[in-house]
Deep mutational scan, measured.
Amino acid sequence: KRLSEREFDPDIHCGVIDLDTKKPCTRSLTCKTHSLTQRRAVQGRRKRFDVLLAEHKNKTR
Rank of each mutant, 00 (worst) to 15 (best):
Q43Y: 13
K59L: 15
C25D: 01
D50N: 04
S28Y: 08
R46Q: 12
T37M: 14
T37L: 12
L52C: 05
L53A: 04
Q38L: 11
R45S: 06
T30F: 08
R46G: 12
H13G: 01
T26R: 10
V16E: 01
P10H: 02
C31G: 00
L36P: 05
L29G: 01
G15Y: 03
F49Y: 05
A54Y: 08
G44F: 03
K22C: 10
V42S: 01
K32M: 07
K57T: 07
F8K: 01
V51N: 07
C31R: 00
E5H: 11
P10I: 07
P10T: 06
L19P: 13
R2H: 13
K59C: 15
D50F: 02
R6Q: 12
A54Q: 12
R2K: 15
F8V: 09
T37Q: 13
L29K: 02
L53E: 05
L3H: 08
F49H: 03
D20F: 06
F8W: 07
P10R: 05
S4W: 03
T26H: 06
S4G: 12
T26L: 13
T30R: 08
T37K: 14
D50A: 04
D9Y: 07
A41R: 12
T37P: 11
T37R: 10
Q38I: 01
Q43D: 08
R45Y: 01
G15K: 00
H56G: 08
K57V: 15
T37S: 13
K23N: 07
L29Y: 02
P10W: 07
S28F: 13
S28C: 12
R46W: 04
H56W: 12
H13S: 05
L3K: 06
T26A: 08
L3M: 15
N58Y: 05
V51Y: 06
P10K: 07
H56L: 13
C14D: 01
D20H: 10
R2P: 07
K57I: 15
L36H: 10
L53W: 05
T26M: 10
V51H: 11
V42F: 02
V42E: 02
R40F: 05
L53I: 07
P24R: 08
F49R: 02
T21E: 12
N58D: 11
Q38R: 05
C14K: 00
Q38H: 05
